[in-house]
Design a binder for these strands. Structure first.
Length: 259
DNA sequence: ATGGCTTATTGTATAAGA
């Protein structure tokens, strides 16, 4: 006897603007956990009441203007943790909670802006600290799912024009190596368990009619431990919200487990 | 063609995203 369990991640690019889309999506999909990134609001502004009215608990770690992460669930959110340990950081990029025995991480990885920038160096340092922490989480929680906006397209098939993007931020070798080190801890890129094809993206630039022309990148990922891999039955990118009025530039990625 | 669009901000231009 197995029970369906649905996990999702979505960079909403301002929850203040996107709350109606999020509430509609929650009502339609009824996930067991939805991880958000780029809420761009302080905890005092987070819509706990609207979510509660819809039947969801939530935990949020945010700040004004930038960053901000949350986990929304109809179930209890236990052992909540924020930030990377032993990494001085004023930017709110990490929240984790245990939901029905599954350790769920919502992560907003540093963008990095350009490979010759200080922000890129911060991205690589941040990723090293993230890897060290995820290693600890995995040791403590065999059933681990690390969801979020990784701001890394792991392979050329995850980029609409690898030649044009070669060496750029999001696809550069040091970033891709950092992603591979996460996998080497014992995690799997759940989307690729089911979909080997190129041209599957989770983000499209607002400019240049990027979505209509499918000029995108697959940078939002759900990494899962071996124990969860054994339960995985499907993983999809839901492009529907990207077609709405005033969409986020990212769209949800959804993992289905049978537990 | 280094921009194109969208968001937030003690705003009327700037910074950041990816």
């Amino acid at each position: 006897m197995t029970t369906p369990f649905k996990l999702a991640t979505w960079n909403v690019n301002s929850l203040n603007v996107r709350l109606p889309h999020v509430l509609d999506w929650l009502a339609t999909h009824r996930p067991d956990a939805l991880c958000l990134q780029e809420t761009k609001q302080e905890d005092s502004k987070f819509p706990y009441a609207a979510l509660a009215e819809a039947g969801f608990h939530a935990v949020h770690h945010g700040q004004k203007t930038y960053n901000g992460v949350a986990i929304i669930s109809p179930h209890a959110l236990e052992a909540v943790h924020v930030d990377l340990p032993e990494f001085e950081d004023s930017q709110k990029r990490i929240i984790a909670a245990t939901i029905q025995g599954v350790r769920v991480v919502s992560a907003y990885v540093v963008n990095g802006q350009a490979v010759d920038s200080d922000k890129y160096q911060y991205k690589l340092r941040w990723l090293a600290a993230f890897e060290a922490w995820i290693k600890q989480e995995l040791a403590q929680h065999p059933q681990l799912a690390v969801l979020g906006d990784y701001n890394i397209a792991p392979e050329d098939r995850d980029c609409h024009d690898p030649a044009a993007w070669e060496g750029q931020v999001l696809v550069s070798a040091p970033e891709r190596e950092a992603f591979q080190r996460l996998l080497a801890l014992g995690l799997s890129d759940s989307f690729r368990l089911f979909h080997p094809e190129a041209g599957q993206f989770s983000w499209w630039d607002y400019r240049m009619a990027g979505f209509r022309r499918n000029l995108g990148m697959r940078i939002d990922h759900i990494l899962i431990s071996e124990a969860l891999k054994a339960q995985a039955i499907a993983c999809e990118i839901d492009k529907a919200p990207r077609k709405l009025e005033r969409p986020s530039d990212h769209t949800p990625v959804v993992l289905h487990l049978a537990r």
